[in-house]
Design a protein around this nucleic acid. Structure first.
Lengths: 176, 176, 176, 176
DNA sequence: CATGAATGAGAATTCATTCAT
DNA sequence: AATGAATGAATTCTCATTCAT
């Protein structure tokens, strides 16, 4: 995970992975059929943990706003702990050499869309294309989160979360 | 450009690039110092054209809303013409193997931020962190645009543009 | 034996041998110094059984013709039982990577040559180079026997044995 | 060819082949897709030359005896020139694994069988199973020829040829 | 200018062998 | 005695780069 996150999916070598893992090159092949399998499995594992956290947040009781904020907190804290994974998350969306998005990413979008529809039903948010909204919200959040990872001195997490919630819910237009 | 866009920055081989260009491998080295230079220059060239269009849109007279919409139209129409480049644009943000973002990306963000500040000054939009807003808006737009590229039957461009403008300006909260 | 016969002396892996034997890889090294020793010993064992049968046939009382036929029957019936070993027998003659023939093969040839000399002495067969004759006869027999192993529907054993005896003893020339 | 003949089909390494050929490892891959292709093609090439010579001998006018002797001379002189190939010829018959390079060998046997049938027709040799005879004769010849390659001081070629012709045509039985 | 054959450093993969349990 | 996880040397293969033509 660390090596792939650091070097990227193509540049990571079996040698470096072995060294980082503290085993010999050959040992890796006892656990993964080949390099491809290793990358795939590693990728899946890294992302599964994140999605589990986000789903847990979305599953809590409360208003849409509360759930959205909770999922946002989950995402931010995950990357706070695993700064290196931002590149994996990045690749999740449009993996090299494939035109399709990753299944897990699409599933997460679908869950977000369904939550949005519920909120529309309850009148909490306006009626709009739920799938597109899910995409826009997810990526807006990711953008800030990924940016934080590479920033020397990012603002407090709460500031970014508040800004995102504020922008998503009320837009940027002035209402004076 | 085509090969790099198709295969990705790491997977593109000099052989395939030469074939697509209709020249011999060696010939490439008459025009580029090495593979790195080729990738960098190609990347820059692909992106410069896009940024030029966006900047032109931003430079027009009018309200913030008008300029934002114009830049959005520019971006969408560019990728309508160059579907394959979405992967390059993708890489623009966090190039493999580097922790830094690409200079051009940061510059574009800065221009957007300064436009946002002008709009805040004029009272057109609320006072918020302009840099973060620039990031959020840019990425929300990119998310939809990139998604369109891989969609079989994307909705009409105007629908996506309207949705984005609407969401960015007014948020998703219901005001009944 | 089975694995080496099936895969060949070079392609057989310790892993597959261990699996077929129902033991762990490491266990093999309690019984054989290394892979080379295993292959050599296995080879020897497989061939010793065959040579014992042939020698028994040659040791019976009777005319040269009777003894030759008996040894032929022994050889054919052995490979009838152990079809997979033909590849081992094949390697017996000119082992890969060595220029020398296998000792046991040479010894068998020598025994055959001495039997031929006895038959010359007794006037049963013509005076010719006994060593070359032993070689020619042995290989002619092997050729048919090996061919039988790979044939879908080989002719009856007796037909092949009769043909070989006939050809060896009387040649192919017409005497009409 | 030389390396494969010397080391065997499995033990020959790309490194040694490259060195013997006086090129770099990578260069080989410009001419052969992979190791397998190299071995197959090399093998085929080595054998084609031999079979061409034998066929030329068989195609001459004359009695069966004359043609057989001519083909025998061809075979002996080929291996006189290319001593190292005996191992390739050896492998031709029952290649490790189950490669189908065997085809050329089978074709040659078929040609020999058809020549034998002609000789039976003309009454020059006795009526017997022509396919089995072709096999027996071919392998008897090969046996002597291969043995010559590994012998320190082989007898004169003519002696071996005479012995083979004599044995094949008239058998070993005494007619006193 | 252009070529493309040749290069060789570097990466992935295999497998005989070891050794702590 | 037996195990099998771990090792790493050896091998195949890729591809950016060079250079004689």
């Amino acid at each position: 995970m660390r090596v792939i996150a650091r070097r990227g999916m193509t540049a990571a070598t079996m040698q470096e992975i072995a060294e980082e893992a503290g085993v010999a090159k050959g040992t890796i092949y006892l656990y993964f059929k080949d390099r491809d399998a290793l990358v795939d499995k590693t990728f899946e594992r890294a992302i599964t943990e994140l999605l589990k956290r986000i789903d847990a947040a979305l599953a809590t009781e409360g208003t849409f706003e509360q759930k959205l904020r909770a999922s946002l907190v989950a995402k931010f804290s995950y990357f706070q702990e695993h700064r290196e994974f931002f590149r994996l998350y990045h690749a999740l969306r449009y993996p090299e050499g494939k035109r399709r998005t990753q299944k897990q990413y699409d599933e997460q979008l679908a869950r977000m869309a369904s939550m949005i529809e519920d909120a529309m039903q309850s009148g909490e948010i306006r009626r709009m294309d739920s799938k597109r909204l899910a995409l826009i919200i997810t990526e807006a959040i990711s953008a800030v989160m990924i940016r934080r990872v590479v920033e020397e001195n990012p603002p407090p997490v709460s500031a970014d979360i508040d800004l995102l919630m504020d922008t998503i819910l009320d837009g940027i237009r002035s209402h004076s």
